[in-house]
């Protein structure tokens, strides 16, 4: 259900409410039944339009997979993060040298960062 449907629903519900209120007035005689039934019908149709349809779930893009490369020299803290490439695996020795100390480098982690706020109920 698009946004137009929701707007029509709101208008119909409002109109239905007015008609329903009119229908409750005993002074207008026989017309009150007509107003009452039509008002009730329009209100329920309007509410159905507002609440109907599948709620628009915004599809979140998949978090990117990150490859973490570290220098093999325990005294060097150089670390590089890049997007995952096919053929990467954890503990894969790489042919590149550390730009800081010149030692060999190894993939030490491949992971995704999950959004912590996904957990809605916190007790």
């Amino acid at each position: 259900m698009g946004i137009a449907g929701k707007i029509i629903g709101v208008i119909m519900t409002g109109t239905g409410m007015v008609l329903l209120t009119l229908g409750m007035d005993p002074n207008i005689g026989i017309l009150s039944w007509g107003y009452f039934i039509i008002g009730l019908f329009m209100m329920s149709l309007g509410m159905a339009l507002i609440t109907g349809g599948k709620s628009q779930q915004v599809k979140k893009p998949k978090p990117p997979t990150i490859t973490e490369i570290r220098c093999d020299n325990t005294e060097c803290t150089f670390k590089e993060l890049r997007d995952f490439e096919r053929g990467d695996y954890i503990l894969k020795p790489l042919d590149v040298s550390c730009p800081r100390c010149g030692s060999t480098m190894t993939i030490q982690g491949i992971y995704i960062v999950r959004d912590e706020s996904e957990e809605k109920i916190k007790i």
Binding site: I110, Y111, R114
Partner: peptide, 12 residues
Amino acid sequence: AAAIGVMPKQVL
């Protein structure tokens, strides 16, 4: 989802 999906950072 974490056990059979790509390893999340929290697990690593």
